[in-house]
Design a protein around this nucleic acid. Structure first.
Lengths: 254, 254
DNA sequence: TTCGTCAGTTTGTCATGACAAAGTATTGAC
DNA sequence: GTCAATACTTTGTCATGACAAACTGACGAA
């Protein structure tokens, strides 16, 4: 029943820990373990060394080792069973570590994104937008309209609203970078978001800028994003060409 | 800048802890804190008592208190800042605790779901399905086709494949319960999933059963779900009427 | 006023030690 | 041979103690 009972490997060598570093010990251990797993040096299903031995061999305490392992358990790379041990789980279930934006995704997929900024101005927020951003109705927000290209073809028409006091945006910044990258650089790290994804036929204006036929299917997405403290960062209302794009989403419970 | 600096409340009273219970102390503390937060007895933005005092007052060690708080931090209810304290965050950003299925969602929204089972048989898995479920190509799987109604109207056409050795399914079970509920009841708890969401026009057959016009927009979703150990539980390929349904998704990083 | 310094508060990291609970493997009785 | 009891392994829980790092606010010097 038990998978390959390969002899527990030696995951991390003691010399690799740096006690003078500002990086916490548990994090150094976790990072090294993660590398070994991602490089396949500890195969899927294999058991890692038990906590007690690992701690002793590395010269750290058991709680420190435990915390390192726990860190990887929480992001779904390892599973622990009392009385059995700790095993590496299949890579597919691992949780994404950051909230990504379309631009980041396209860059990562080498699809050569380009952004055309259609509008950038400060306007009073419509009620739905103000409610989403938890601002008093009528508060002014930075309003952005962008056309996103990938591989030379139009892909999405994007509308965003951002609280004015959060960040000063310039057209050339938006042309060269994703919105989330700019927010992060300004110290506002998106951490939670709710998205509503739907579909509808394209109207005439959308069909024109997206080079689709009128009536063809579009994916729609409205999103509100918050930082770790629950502060609303961004409201977005976007349409994507369904013929060229789909959402890939990882969900994990617990 | 700081929100209401209400005096730190007394969140948990010492008498509420039961050291003879098999429920871990840290979990008892966490549960009680969670109740207080959800009941609004500790308001959004309010600071909770600091770790050291709380531990002393409850008669538990600081690590135990810390672990309780950490538990709530990880599910997004609390935020900690070194040198500042621990605050309650806005309810909107809290992470869902379970992977829900369409049926559960409809029940919760009181939209009176009904399910018509169109097919339930064992067939050799197509290659894409076998790959998704990590089975050898050609392995037999349980294949389900269902038509899901809500409020008397057709809503979605659903196709699922499930490893045969996982669960024995009966038509009447599927008619009365969601697939995830049945899986959970059989001891297979879905924990992670990847979904790909897209859109396309309806073909003739889909339009007929869903009572839509041919060519109207449909939402498509393919999903693979795994349990905590990384074992594939289910592959699904579904289409939804875009005019009646949209996906609401919470994403959280870290 | 403005800036830096310093003390105080609070969370973050780490070590050591102990016992409990769950699962596995072995042993022994029948 | 089968089954139950036992020993062993491994993770889970909890306590105590210590110091570090980040933030706040008050104070004082320029």
């Amino acid at each position: 029943m038990t998978p390959e009972l390969s002899p527990p490997r030696s995951p991390v060598r003691p010399g690799e820990l740096d006690r003078t570093s500002p990086v916490p010990l548990y994090f150094q251990v976790a990072t090294r373990l993660q590398e070994l797993i991602e490089n396949g040096e500890i195969g899927v299903g294999a058991r890692i060394e038990n906590e007690v031995d690992l701690a002793e061999r590395l010269g750290v305490s058991r709680p420190t080792t435990r915390r390192a392992i726990q860190y990887l358990v929480e992001r779904g790379m390892l599973v622990r069973k009392r009385g059995v041990g700790t095993q590496v789980v299949h890579p597919k279930v691992r949780r994404p570590v950051e909230l990504t934006s379309l631009y980041d995704d396209l860059v990562a997929a080498d699809r050569k994104p380009r952004t055309e900024v259609l509008a950038l101005r400060v306007v009073p927020a419509p009620d739905t937008v103000a409610d989403a951003l938890e601002l008093p109705r009528g508060t002014e927000v930075t309003w952005i309209e962008r056309l996103r290209y990938a591989g030379g073809e139009p892909l999405a028409l994007m509308h965003n609203a951002i609280p004015v006091d959060l960040i000063r945006l310039a057209v050339h910044d938006l042309a060269d970078h994703g919105l989330y990258e700019l927010l992060r650089r300004a110290g506002h790290v998106p951490r939670n978001a709710t998205q509503v994804i739907g579909a509808r036929p394209a109207n005439a204006g959308e069909a024109r800028v997206l080079q689709e036929k009128r009536g063809s299917s579009l994916l729609t997405m409205t999103r509100t994003a918050w930082d770790a403290g629950g502060r609303p960062l961004e409201y977005g209302s976007h349409v994507y060409r369904a013929s060229r794009y789909s959402f890939e989403i990882s969900v994990s419970a617990g």
